[in-house]
């Protein structure tokens, strides 16, 4: 794989909270246009990896490169501007706003006319906001929420909230999309649809997707590359078939089940 084929690379990312090392020397290179998976038992450090990549945590050690340029150390909004969007494990919508407004807020960072243009009622402002509304409606259509555009976001059912969060992330026009447990709380039917949906947006928006997921069927079906974390350490990396038969991975997951029992 050539360097050009890599959209985002993590090099030796380490995150320590006091004495706890949540993630230790996580290194990964994500091929452009791929769907990758990050898995591991509870508390393995998956979300912490997301937070380091998206600028919410400043890594104790290591760096992140987007298209070869360093992005670690920059605040989240700049990372998002550079083309990295995310969703959250515990859904974070703008609950008091409508479904449409949520998506419009996602589009804000690409907006050219600002608050002054709005107050002065400049025609360019109205034109741009109309175009943004149309684009937002297209995105809502893509996630099957167009008919709920006027609803308050917090009133949506769970599955719809997850899809809205993805639509909102897409509105920022990312090239790299991180999904933190997108299928959590979904029934098998919804999970099936979600899988197809992720494939579709990868094609339609020319995205690279990295997802965290506990649903192994989904992960093994959809991901081309998988990284496995356990207690912050990367214990395996490779294609789904190899991961499934990796003794260390099996042990990590079995160990968890034994501990749960």
């Amino acid at each position: 794989m050539t360097r050009d084929g890599i959209i985002l690379e993590a090099r030796g990312l380490t995150m320590r909270f006091g004495g706890l090392t949540a993630v230790k020397e996580f290194s990964a290179a994500f091929p452009r246009g791929s769907i990758c998976g990050l898995i591991g038992p509870n508390g393995a450090g998956k979300t912490t990896c997301f937070n380091m990549i998206t600028g919410f945590y400043r890594p104790t050690e290591g760096q992140v490169f987007l298209n070869g340029g360093p992005i670690s150390g920059r605040p989240p909004y700049e990372v998002c501007r550079a083309g990295v969007a995310r969703t959250f494990q515990n859904i974070r919508l703008f609950g008091n706003e409508t479904v449409l407004q949520n998506v419009l807020i996602g589009g804000h960072l690409r907006q050219k006319t600002g608050w002054l243009a709005a107050v002065l009622c400049l025609p360019a402002h109205f034109r741009e906001e109309r175009a943004m509304r149309e684009r937002a409606m297209e995105l809502l259509d893509a996630v099957g929420l167009a008919h709920l555009a006027g609803e308050q976001a917090s009133a949506l059912p769970y599955g719809a909230q997850r899809r809205l969060e993805i639509a909102r992330a897409l509105a920022t026009r990312p090239s790299f999309l991180l999904l933190d447990e997108p299928a959590a709380g979904m029934n098998p039917q919804e999970t099936q649809e979600l899988m197809q949906f992720i494939r579709n947006i990868r094609e339609g928006f020319g995205l690279t997707v990295l997802l965290i997921e506990h649903d192994m069927k989904l992960v093994m079906n959809i991901c081309e590359q998988i990284w496995v974390l356990d207690y912050g350490e990367t214990i395996a990396q490779g294609e789904p078939a190899a991961i499934q038969s990796d003794p260390r991975v099996i042990e990590a997951y079995l160990g968890e089940e034994c501990a749960d029992a």
Partner: peptide, 26 residues
């Protein structure tokens, strides 16, 4: 005018969930 524009939406987004607003590039 301000609050019915998208800038107003962004203000409300900050009020509702500052972390999500940051993640949206605000």
């Amino acid at each position: 005018r301000l609050l019915s524009s998208n800038t107003g939406n962004v203000f409300k987004a900050i009020r509702d969930d500052e972390i999500a607003a940051k993640a949206m590039g605000v």
